[in-house]
Write a protein that binds this DNA or RNA. Sequence first.
DNA 1: AGGATGACGAACAATTTTGTTCGTTATTGC
DNA 2: GCAATAACGAACAAAATTGTTCGTCATCCT
Lengths: 119, 119
Amino acid sequence: MRKEQSTNAENIRKIIALCPLSYTQTVIGGRWKPLILDRLMHGIQRYSEIRKSIPPITERMLTMQLKELERDGLIARAEYGKVPMRVEYTLTEKGASLKTVLTAMYHWGSEFNTTLTAT
Amino acid sequence: MRKEQSTNAENIRKIIALCPLSYTQTVIGGRWKPLILDRLMHGIQRYSEIRKSIPPITERMLTMQLKELERDGLIARAEYGKVPMRVEYTLTEKGASLKTVLTAMYHWGSEFNTTLTAT
DNA sequence: AGGATGACGAACAATTTTGTTCGTTATTGC
DNA sequence: GCAATAACGAACAAAATTGTTCGTCATCCT
């Protein structure tokens, strides 16, 4: 949760007002969000499937990020069944339209990531 | 600085290995980097000019982000003159090639930022 | 002689993000 | 009758990011 009054929080508002780039960065920022959105774009929808497709993520992190993505209108949540509950997430129109951004990031990353060059 | 041994730091390595998206996100992540890169793409180069163009940034933050961008090979630093020192930053080829990514982010942001809709 | 300049670095504090551990639901399979 | 399941929530702890304050260089302007 944010401390709505901190300089930190105010700065986010200021830079979002300053440049559209910052809004995008705020919404897809964080370690896991691009990864999660990528999975959703590839048709993976169930909570448990997403989790399996991103081994190092913890349940807590996945849950939190999904909540934020939902709050920001990028994904929609749907429950099926009751107790061994089943939940599916799908991209909203807004979320799906991030595809251009993520695709560009993906291409750039595969071209310039040099951290694995130590064959 | 990173605590090279933390789970946190290990996770970064893991997700970078997992998907190119994560490398990109790691490199342009953070609050200020997209903004700084944007300024450089628009021809602003001097430290002091960048700072003026992003009012809420502090000198410390600007300095740190520039250092990281340089370390990651996105920008190059050049000093001119001695004491009222003058420094200019320019995009490297790698940095300039981020333009597609930033442009996509910019467009998406201007289309979907709803935080200012309270006219 | 004294203040302004430009681009930082250091020490510290506040805030945010990320990770760990444990518990919850009610049904199904053994 | 007992463990496993799916999708979380809560309390806490660790780590990372961001922000604050102050100090530095040597020259130029007044």
